[in-house]
């Protein structure tokens, strides 16, 4: 699915100059714990999170996450946006909660393929 379609599904708003609207995305990770993202997120997936600090962008960069969607209409501070632009990671803000955003995207056919090994 195209990034632009995902943005439309969650009624999202792009908040960076970096857009990458034409990239194809197949996986979503949802988490507020950055270590969890580092441990389990698929490379090239999109991160859904309720956290807005610059560490989210840094985490995404380390884990090869390709875009971040902030839930509940959260607008990240300027330092988060400037770091994302520097690292070329598009940021989107959605009015939906984590629960609803996950629900909509799951229904649209997106999956996460992480199968825990414990």
């Amino acid at each position: 699915m195209k990034f632009r379609e995902i943005i439309a599904i969650v009624k999202g708003e792009l908040i960076t100059k970096i857009a990458k609207l034409d990239m194809d995305v197949t996986h979503i990770s949802a988490a507020d714990l950055m270590s969890d993202v580092l441990a389990f997120a698929e490379p090239e997936s999109i991160l859904l999170t309720g956290l807005c600090n610059p560490q989210v962008v840094c985490t995404a960069e380390m884990a090869d996450i390709v875009a971040i969607i902030f839930v509940r209409d959260k607008k990240p501070p300027p330092e988060t946006i400037s770091l994302a632009e520097e690292e070329r990671i598009p940021l989107v803000s959605t009015p939906y909660s984590m629960f609803e955003a996950c629900g909509c995207l799951y229904q649209a056919g997106l999956r996460d393929i992480h199968i825990p090994d414990e």
């Binding site: 609803e100 996950c102 629900g103 799951y106 229904q107």
Partner: peptide, 16 residues
Amino acid sequence: TTFTVVGRLYELGVPG
């Protein structure tokens, strides 16, 4: 994962 659990709950009709 959280994403899948929520997706399934949502499918079963649990609203946010």
